[in-house]
């Protein structure tokens, strides 16, 4: 059994302009200790799909199944989900400043998390807080400092320390380096890389994926289009979208090869394969029938073009 098994997850928002189907059937697994990279462009549903199963998106309709260590997260009472979220699943967000409370010292915020979930005394909780901060490269004596006294990179370290506070089995990092500068980004990636627990990294940055993911899921318009091991994805991309994405990155002085067109509206996604309006190799079947994930278990993709389909 995997640590996290998500099956046919769907997330829908009601808007004045109609139902917005942000996630339209996502399945994936995360093994203990493994790093899953979820990559996609804006509107691909990569963030929504992971946040929804933790109950972090109020107002959304969430359907499907998500088994965390055998427990069903979808439909779980909010209080119980909150306890799992705090203790067994840690979160790291893009913008640490908005996730940290400005009026409490960072040490206190970590200690509070420990106190809520563990039967320990205040002293012990603070000891844990200082230990975690040291683990992410922040001197323990800075535990009494407030979030605004830290730089952007240091705050992201604080977030990671907080996510790690209770030795979670899984940490979810949502665009953890997007707001950071290049030199700081490298530090944070290195830190995330040696956490040891299972990790889901959600990002638009293929460099982050190349750097740290074991398994990769590529998403487009609310659905996975390809899943592969890290090296297989970069060396043998199968879905035309994945190929297009990799091709549009600058490589030296060669003229760039963009994907034409633009991502579809999720209020009225295209029929059939949602990538077909932009796909350079579409066949008559693509606008009519939606391709399922096909192919070997370790590298499936959702495209009709592969041989024998």
């Amino acid at each position: 059994m995997s640590l996290l098994e998500v099956a046919d997850l769907r997330v829908t928002f009601s808007t004045p302009d109609g139902d917005l189907r942000a996630v339209r059937g996502v399945s994936f697994e995360v093994e203990a200790g493994q790093t899953l990279g979820v990559v996609g462009e804006s509107g691909s549903g990569k963030s929504v799909s992971v946040q929804a199963l933790l109950g972090l998106i109020p107002g959304a309709r969430v359907e499907g199944s998500a088994l965390f260590d055998g427990e069903q997260l979808i439909g779980m009472p909010a209080e119980r989900l909150r306890r799992i979220r705090g203790a067994r699943i840690g979160m790291v967000f893009q913008d640490p400043l908005s996730s940290l409370h400005p009026m409490y010292s960072v040490g206190r915020q970590i200690a509070e998390a420990v106190l809520v979930h563990r039967r320990v005394g205040k002293e012990q909780a603070w000891a844990v807080a200082r230990e975690r901060l040291e683990q992410v490269g922040i001197p323990g004596e800075r535990a009494r400092d407030y979030p605004h006294q830290f730089s952007g990179g240091m705050r992201q370290r604080v977030m990671i320390a907080m996510a790690m506070a209770l030795d979670p089995e899984l940490i979810i990092a949502d665009e953890p380096t997007t707001a950071l500068d290049a030199t700081v980004r490298a530090q944070i990636l290195e830190l995330l890389g040696r956490l040891g627990c299972a990790l889901i990294v959600i990002t638009h940055d293929l460099g982050v994926i190349a750097d740290m993911a074991d398994e990769v899921m590529v998403m487009y318009a609310g659905k996975p289009v390809e899943k592969a091991g890290r090296r297989a994805l970069f060396h043998d991309p199968r879905h035309p979208y994945t190929r297009g994405l990799l091709n549009s990155l600058p490589q030296g002085k060669e003229r760039l090869k963009p994907i034409e067109g633009r991502p579809p509206s999720l209020l009225s996604p295209p029929t059939g394969c949602s990538f077909h309006p932009r796909c350079p190799v579409r066949i008559p079947r693509c606008p009519i029938e939606e391709p399922p994930m096909l192919g070997p278990d370790d590298h499936p993709d959702a495209c009709w073009l592969e041989e024998g389909r």
């Binding site: 462009e41 994405l245 549009s248 963009p258 991502p263």
Partner: peptide
Amino acid sequence: LDVSIQAQVVN
């Protein structure tokens, strides 16, 4: 911009 769109604008 998203990666695939970046390339369009740069070109």
